[in-house]
Amino acid sequence: MTIPSISVKSPLHADHLALDAEFTARGIGSAVAYYGEQHAEQFNEQLSILDLSCINRIGFKGVQTCTWLEQQGVTLPQTPNSATVLPAGQIMLRLSSTEHWVLDSVTKDSDLCGQLRDSHNRSDVKSYLLERNHSHACFYIVSEPGSTSAAETMSKICAVDLRPHRFANLAMAQTSVARLNAVVVRHDHLGRLAYLILSDMTAAQFMWHSVLDAMQEFDGRPAGLNAITLEAK
């Protein structure tokens, strides 16, 4: 087992080690490349969950946030509770009329969050910087192509109707998941129905195991980052 020299570990690091995970440097720290004998480096046949807490993410909130972000050349979602994907793969989330979060790309090298953080620190814009790296864990639930098992899993732990015909791609819901406050974003991956979950970092383990428990009937299992990066190539 090789663990790269990294600065930030996922709050689930011990859980990943228990599953014989191999790690890779990514974003702000380390991510699971693949688990144990899962050297095929692909998604599970039915349903997968990935710990993406390594992704660099940041938020801004304030009356001048929209104007300032647009000045930085970022395309913003037009309405609250929606998301957009930028050409380099970063995801922009609009939580309200004055609050936006940015998630750096998983598959491509990107440091938009770092650039925005630096630019924000140099400016006197009326906008608060929200360090989401430390506040929110990030998980990604991915179905197999043509399957809605991710939506069926979510229906067991979330009261909002997230089925694909009711919850469009890049729609977002700020709601309760497994009784924890969470932000859920539908972000399909190469034709696979998929949801991002951002929830309290301190309860990351609880959320991880709650989702895994809900995934059991669909034979859902954890998958590593290689499943995304290799399939995207």
Partner: peptide, 11 residues
């Protein structure tokens, strides 16, 4: 008004 109809436990 922002998020739509939700269970009362979210409020």
């Amino acid at each position: 008004p922002l998020n739509g109809l939700r269970n009362i436990t979210e409020f």
